[in-house]
Design a binder for these strands. Structure first.
Lengths: 345, 345
DNA sequence: CTGAAAGCGCTAACAG
DNA sequence: CTGTTAGCGCTTTCAG
């Protein structure tokens, strides 16, 4: 293995000079810089990560904790993870992959051992067990998601409350007075996953404001489950004229079932989704939807972390919540409600 | 930060003793071990990862390279990644997340800097640009996938050739004489992705053996694309009585289209999928399918690597290809072909 | 603008 | 069974 000392000898300079050429932390004459970089090139030198971390107490590694369970938003999760890795690399950082299963102790481990300088958490619950570790002299951290009490925490997320409200506004604007929400699996709500509950809250309050009657049903992703939920909804609320879906796997089953029961979209019933843009666009009926900006979330999370890591301690951007404004894209699945059926027609 | 030296002082022993208590590399009397572990506990000591890596030249980190593109098998990819992380942890290793985009140079970087001891590559192409690096004095590596020439490489994958053959056998056994294969996106074949081409080869050769007529069409995942491909197939081969699908996103559109065109599954037409079990089981018609054992693949990849890392160099399990035997699960989507239409009936 | 040298915290001979 | 000690390769004062 080629060491910095060998490079120094080869270039006829001291070790510290090579180090400073690499870090740029002090001025180096153009001549020596050239000599050093040439030697580095020729010898194929690569600084030893461990030695660096030891001497500088900076590992240049960010830990990313992804949920172990895969009952929802899988493509979104991967997209965020990839965006995190890509952005981190652009800033000279690497990403360590942790699974949610390991819990708070994993955070202590990677952070306490100096393996990772900072952490990014995905799939945050409203009352997440990992949060105490972060508040109490924890490492720099950014959550992708929003817990119940974000005080002292650094969070990035889509404004799901606004997203919910946006869906209601769109439908109310079209004239719908009665809608149904097909949500994530019951387990997601049982775990009090932030985004699901916040969407619901946005839907509910805006529905109240705009005097839209609303029904919410959690739903498993299987075709049968969707069939059951749909039947129940239509039974309980025969006048529902629009659906809001927040459940990737329920999208196609829902559309198929509506077709099969002779309900045309959007003529007889409108559908608005909160999901990855790709899914909405590729659905059998291109869906009006609020997109989940996965890449943007991953990117921002890293950039906040880097700002914190490189900035003055507790300086700008140290904490605070950043909610991205949702955007609703109108596609083919939403329109005005059907005219009220004339009695006897 | 608590150091090993402080632990040693606190416990009244030497630094090396503490180190050996931790590593178990030499016998320690029960008494001192107790004293040391107590001190470790009390002081909340955590060994410094960088220092360890430097002193031992072992980082206890495995790099995992996942594809950047997300045009296929996303849930499977994440599941493999999570299985890799989980299994690695069980062996005391951490996982560094790399994106495929970085290419061969990323492998050199993490490996040359001692950041990672070994690598796992996903989404291997038949002629993958990253392979030369691995053959030429590369780091210990395991590929999840199978390149054209696996000589000198360590590979784990599902036996997709056998999977293809299995599908044909199942359908031929039921009496089908003419089948159509709906494949991955054209881009996947254009990139010569191993699993797609191998499945195809298995399908083709077994079809030839069993005198089954077969047609293959790549297909994008959108509903419209599936509709186009299906129409074309039915046009060109009106007597097709069964479909093999290897494309997660095409599954539901296909089933919906068959329904809409009045073809009952499995009475009029059979469907067999090669995809994640969950997708097959949750489809609107539970699908007979060959599962992709994502967890198993991730687990095996790590275990091969660990064996190589801890075993004698170039000893057992150093190289070679391990292909998992595919399993076909019969569900509701396959049955005998419909009786030939009586002319004039 | 450049060198010399003191660690960073741990491992692993070597010595008993 | 335990202690002593020499590094691992790099960063960063302290001196020039």
């Amino acid at each position: 293995m080629v060491t910095l000392a060998e490079v120094a000898r080869h270039a006829g300079v001291s070790a510290s000079t090579v180090s400073y050429v690499l870090s740029g932390k002090r001025p180096i004459s153009a001549v020596t810089r050239r000599r050093v970089t040439a030697s580095i090139e020729q010898l194929g030198y690569q600084p030893h990560a461990g030695a660096r971390a030891l001497a500088s107490s900076r590992s240049r590694i960010i830990a990313l904790m992804v949920p172990l369970r895969t009952d929802m938003y899988v493509p979104v999760m991967l997209e965020i993870a990839v965006a995190v890795a890509t952005t981190a690399r652009a800033h000279g950082y690497d990403v360590l992959l942790l699974t949610g299963e390991e819990g708070p102790s994993a955070l202590r481990r990677v952070t306490g051992s100096g393996l990772a300088e900072a952490v990014i958490l995905m799939d945050v619950q409203l009352d997440d067990g990992r949060l105490p570790v972060l508040r109490t002299a924890g490492p720099p951290a950014v959550l992708v998601g929003l817990p119940a009490d974000p005080a002292g925490l650094n969070c990035v997320d889509l404004d799901f409350r606004a997203a919910g409200a946006l869906c209601v506004d769109h439908l109310a604007g079209l004239g719908h007075r009665e809608i149904a929400v097909i949500g994530e699996s019951p387990g997601v709500y049982a775990r009090h996953t932030g985004f699901a509950e916040r969407t619901l809250s946005g839907l509910r309050s805006r529905a109240a404001e705009r005097e839209v009657r609303m029904l919410h049903r959690p739903c498993e992703g299987s075709h049968d489950a969707v069939a059951g939920v749909l039947a129940r909804i239509l039974d309980e609320r025969p006048h529902v004229s629009a659906f809001v879906v927040q459940n990737e796997t329920a999208v196609e089953p829902l559309l198929a079932l509506l077709r099969r029961t002779g309900r045309a979209v959007p003529e007889d019933v409108s559908v608005v989704a909160v999901c990855a843009d790709q899914i909405a666009a590729q659905a059998s009926v291109p869906l009006t939807s609020v997109a989940i900006p996965a890449q943007e979330l991953g990117r921002r999370a890293v950039e906040r972390l880097i700002a914190r890591l490189t900035g003055r301690p507790d300086g700008e951007g140290a904490a605070g919540v950043e909610l991205l404004t949702p955007v609703l894209t109108v596609r083919d699945s939403s329109g005005p409600p059907p005219p009220p059926r004339t009695p006897g027609a």
